[in-house]
Design a protein around this nucleic acid. Sequence first.
DNA 1: CGCGACGTTGATTTGCCTCAACGATTGTGG
DNA 2: CCACAATCGTTGAGGCAAATCAACGTCGCG
Lengths: 196, 196
Amino acid sequence: MEEIDKIQNYVARHIELTPEERDYFASVLRVAKVKKKQCIVQPGFVCRYRNYIYTGAMRSYLVGNDGQEHTELLSIDDWWITDYNSYIYQQPATLFVEAVEDSVLVQFDHQSEQLLLKAVPKFERFFRIITERSLAFFHRRMLSNLSMTAEERYEEFVTKYPLIPQKVPQYILASYLGMSTEYLSTLRNNRVINKS
Amino acid sequence: MEEIDKIQNYVARHIELTPEERDYFASVLRVAKVKKKQCIVQPGFVCRYRNYIYTGAMRSYLVGNDGQEHTELLSIDDWWITDYNSYIYQQPATLFVEAVEDSVLVQFDHQSEQLLLKAVPKFERFFRIITERSLAFFHRRMLSNLSMTAEERYEEFVTKYPLIPQKVPQYILASYLGMSTEYLSTLRNNRVINKS
DNA sequence: CGCGACGTTGATTTGCCTCAACGATTGTGG
DNA sequence: CCACAATCGTTGAGGCAAATCAACGTCGCG
């Protein structure tokens, strides 16, 4: 299957596997297709899967006490998504994980991941590396949120990730960047005026 | 040395080492003592070390374009600190890493860490686990910053980490929580009034 | 065609910042 | 051991970035 091939290539960029190891790895994977707006994780239920996005776009978000949605992570092809705290500690989720558009995922379930790590310790290295990169990403985002204004965060986002705003409705982008939909809307219009 | 013993115990909680592996590990470590206000990392220089805090308290912070300090991470004994992006990619730092009080650190330099990973692959597992936890922590902090008010973040912080506010001056706490010193000060006083 | 999802716009409000001045505490050199 | 200067916290006045509220336009889809 092409979905499995793609993630095999992804893994091969970081560690070298024997054909047997590749086969074993493939055997623990599972492909899932989700429709736009469908949720694969909900608060209160333990999150079973770490999801590699083959195609599509997903997001994880929290519904606050005030009823507002706050997007924790926006993720597109060749990236990952899950309720991270729920997945690694196997505790009830606090987030929704939802398809922003029709998507195809490759899923790792938690128990198989543990078995895989025992059987093929090279995967420790694989997960170390991708976790380090994800952490470095979150460090950068944290700094942006602490030190930049709403407008600067928006500008930074569209220049760093020009593909995402094309796929994602603005109310989601706004909730990811930590501002209201209305404010993002006025920012975008001021922007057009300033540029001309 | 007791500093080395402590980190050996820390490691032993996650992986089992042979005596030879323990000795090799100890040989790549280095103990550093830093005085309050001393910086061990500065913008523009590549960050050489990952630091385990034996005793003391450290922080990493960014000086924004406006000249304001934004504390990325506050860390005390038995935790870690570094300019993460600088360390793992070995690129020039953007942060200061400073001692909040006199501290004793156990330092891993980047090159030795790579050699250690080759020589003793079990450490892949060790770093995977601590990186996962750190990432989970950042996910939670991200959500707090997106969904909570300044007052709620302060309340959460003092109940979760009651030890830290005792060690850390308020202007640092404020810059960690993403608010001004003055505002944190008024929050604390309103709080006293409301409780009585 | 009609409804729901999404984006926009303007008026008003507010959480938090900035600025400025003033105590309190700490530490340091003479 | 004291005097003086930093460093740190507090308080209040005023201001601004961004939220909220409300109403309306538009598009896509069942």
